[in-house]
Design a protein around this nucleic acid. Structure first.
Length: 270
DNA sequence: ATTGAGACCTGTCGGC
DNA sequence: TGCCGACAGGTCTCAA
């Protein structure tokens, strides 16, 4: 489920519930997710108040009054919910945060590709999962120049480059493919072609950077207004269907790149 | 240094 | 109905 827009939606949903509330108890239903929980994970959070809930790329970070920060990732199938009294629970509810407000926050993750770690807040920026991340795509730091610099000299495809979290942090398979369609760029094209050999942006870099911002902005907006729409994607999962660009006669193709499915229009994406 | 392939897990869907 | 393979929105590790 989660790329940057979905993680941001989770953050907005949890923020009013968690921030300001004290964690009375943390219940671990199993010893690990993708990795084992750190030593004394639950005990270290007990009694602490959540001061802030922020997002970096696809990671959520809860900073606690104890001086620790909880770093979380949803993997492929992770989700949070605030159960009501009638909630029956689920076999994949792995972590339950009991809050002083009486509310519970439950982390559910069938595939267990998610993870949680607890580190000193002063060192959270140096967390191994966060340290290598590239620019936030919606920040001013991410523009044509930054994208071109990151792609210059790259021999991989544009699509694979966009999935590289060092190039831009937070894009996943769906929005990478969507942004390329908006920009009219083929996912198969060599990443280095959007920059000069010196790393100066060509025109395509500007289009792509703008398309990335657009597709993420739209998706974040949609999370709050109309999360479920059958036509929410331009190309993703639309193989053999007509291209949605006005007057484009193309038909969407599917191809595997680096083990992930790409979808693109061979007519209007070059 | 980059890059691709495989691994990690469970669930769902389409075809037979 | 059941079984089987293919696939799923992510990231890490390992070997070329």
């Amino acid at each position: 489920m989660p790329e940057l827009p979905e993680v941001e939606a989770v953050r907005r949903q949890l923020e009013p519930v968690m921030v300001g509330a004290r964690i009375t108890r943390v219940e671990l239903r199993r010893p690990d997710l993708r990795a084992p929980f750190p030593r004394r994970f639950a005990q270290r959070m007990q009694g602490a108040t959540t001061l802030a809930l922020t997002r970096r790329a696809k990671y959520l970070v809860a900073s606690l009054s104890s001086g620790d920060s909880l770093v979380m990732h949803l993997g492929m199938s992770g989700s949070f919910r605030v159960p009501h009294a009638s909630d029956a629970g689920d076999a994949h509810d792995h972590v339950v945060f009991h809050l002083s407000s009486g509310v519970e926050v439950v982390f559910n993750d069938p595939r267990r590709f998610g993870f949680m770690d607890l580190v000193r807040t002063a060192r959270v920026d140096r967390h191994p999962s966060l340290i290598g991340l590239g620019p936030e795509p919606l920040s001013a730091a991410f523009d044509a120049a930054a994208l071109a610099r990151a792609c210059a000299g790259k021999r991989t495809s544009l699509k694979v480059a966009l999935l590289d979290q060092q190039v831009v942090a937070g894009l996943g398979n769906i929005y990478a493919v969507e942004a390329l369609h908006i920009a009219g760029l083929s996912p198969l094209r060599r990443a280095s072609t959007i920059a000069t050999p010196g790393g100066v942006p060509r025109e395509a870099a500007g289009r792509l950077a703008a398309a990335i911002k657009q597709v993420l902005d739209e998706a974040i907006d949609r999370q709050t207004s109309a999360p479920y729409r059958s036509d929410r994607f331009r190309v993703y999962d639309r193989a053999r269907e007509p291209c949605r660009r006005p007057r484009c006669p193309g038909v969407i193709r599917r191809r595997t790149q680096a083990g992930r499915s790409s979808f693109y229009c061979p007519v209007c994406q070059r």
